[in-house]
Amino acid sequence: MTEAPDKPPIDHAFAGDSRGGAADPTYAGALSFMRRPYSKVVHGADLVIWGVPFDLAVTNRPGARFGPQAIRRASAIFDGDPQYPSGLDPFVRLSAIDYGDCALPRGDLQGCARAIEAEAAGILATGAHLVTLGGDHFITLPLLRAHVARHGRLALIQFDAHQDTWDDGPGGIGHGSFVFEAVRQGLIDIERSIQIGIRTVAPRDCGIAILNGYEAHEIGVAGVAQRIRERVGQGPAYLTFDIDALDPAAAPGTGTPVSGGFSAEQALRILWALRDLDIRGMDVVEVSPPYDHADITAIAASTIVQHHIQALALRKSD
């Protein structure tokens, strides 16, 4: 009779440690985010990654409910390597788990909002930093509620083609209205908030600074990063990255694509230039795999999260 090995050769997601890189082949094994062990036990974790597979608030193409699966799959390419550009294994400094996905009550939109907020609040109560894989952009509203309850009012750093300041009415559920609702509910510090890459026109700006797509391209990566720093300052912030901030050439798999956006390289360089900001939580949303090609959009989204995790690791060591 052959005994099972003490440590299985693959499937770090099931049997691995919350610290240190994994060695699973990129083409095999259980697909947690960057092979972090799956766990519902958050105590002791510095970082929790989870998915919110919700797309019932879209106004155009659906499919973002499949975003968390696709982003996890794309993240396998990072498995076990020193990460670019830091050159570090961030999980030497960060204890990190993949919490799986939020449990959502099917058919109950208000119940979904409550479930997202409650489960996020429970994770944040442990002191862990929460990274969310969406899901359409409505999910940022209950996520903001949970983060603000924990950290106080936050600046919003929003990469997006849309301002999301439409009014769906009190209690409305729409991915184009979460910013208006967040302002109405007093969740964000308007004077320190900024929307980057906007390429559409909304009925109101809610007092939030706007850096539109043409202006962002004109001032370049360094100028965009400087503008964000000047607006946000050193106070606490929440980062939300709608993947349609990227040009459809770099992110075809999204529900409301708008031409003229950032390349993946430009967006990643901007995020890396902001790596020392006091970001208390983040999400990447609106990845819709049915419209993706060769995982282009999912790869971009997973790399955005990977850069954020590296920034967390660097701040942890300071």
Rank of each mutant, 00 (worst) to 15 (best):
V42P: 02
L314W: 00
I304E: 00
H308P: 00
V42M: 02
I157Y: 01
A30E: 10
H147T: 12
A313W: 00
P68Q: 05
G172Q: 07
Q158N: 12
W166I: 04
R106H: 11
E191L: 06
E181A: 14
L130P: 01
Q110D: 12
A22N: 07
T132C: 15
A294S: 13
V232F: 06
V285L: 12
I198K: 00
D292Y: 08
S302F: 04
G186D: 10
E218G: 01
A294P: 00
G29P: 00
L144W: 07
E117T: 08
D108K: 03
A182H: 08
K316G: 00
S32A: 13
G197S: 08
S177C: 15
V287E: 03
D318P: 01
I208M: 13
R65V: 05
R269A: 15
H293K: 11
I296K: 10
S95N: 11
I10S: 01
R199F: 08
I210N: 10
G21R: 09
E265R: 13
K7H: 11
E230L: 04
E286A: 07
D295K: 08
E119F: 03
S193P: 03
L274G: 09
A103C: 08
Y84T: 13
A115F: 09
R269T: 11
T240N: 12
F138R: 04
P203A: 09
G21P: 13
H162K: 10
E3A: 12
L187T: 02
I299M: 15
L47F: 05
Q234A: 13
L314Q: 11
V58R: 01
D189K: 13
A125H: 10
A15W: 14
T140A: 15
T254I: 09
I296L: 15
T126E: 15
P37T: 08
Y27H: 15
H175F: 07
A64T: 11
A76V: 05
F180K: 15
I194G: 01
A301N: 05
Q306A: 14
A146Q: 04
P105G: 06
F33K: 03
F138K: 00
E230K: 08
G16P: 05
R61T: 12
P8A: 12
G233V: 07
F180E: 14
L312W: 01
A125K: 14
I198P: 00
R184M: 10
P203C: 09
P90C: 11
Q83N: 07
R199E: 07
I304V: 15
E230A: 11
G171E: 11
A298S: 13
D46V: 00
G29E: 01
P248A: 05
Y238D: 03
D295Y: 13
D278T: 11
G44Q: 02
A273Y: 01
P236C: 04
S288W: 10
S18E: 06
I309E: 02
H12P: 00
R269K: 15
L277E: 10
I190K: 12
K7I: 14
A267E: 01
I279D: 04
A118N: 14
F180W: 13
A115L: 07
P290H: 12
A23I: 04
R150L: 02
C102R: 03
R150P: 04
A64P: 00
E181F: 07
D11Q: 04
D318G: 10
A146C: 09
R150E: 14
V284H: 08
P85A: 10
G261M: 02
L268D: 03
P170Y: 09
L56I: 01
V131A: 13
R106K: 12
T256M: 08
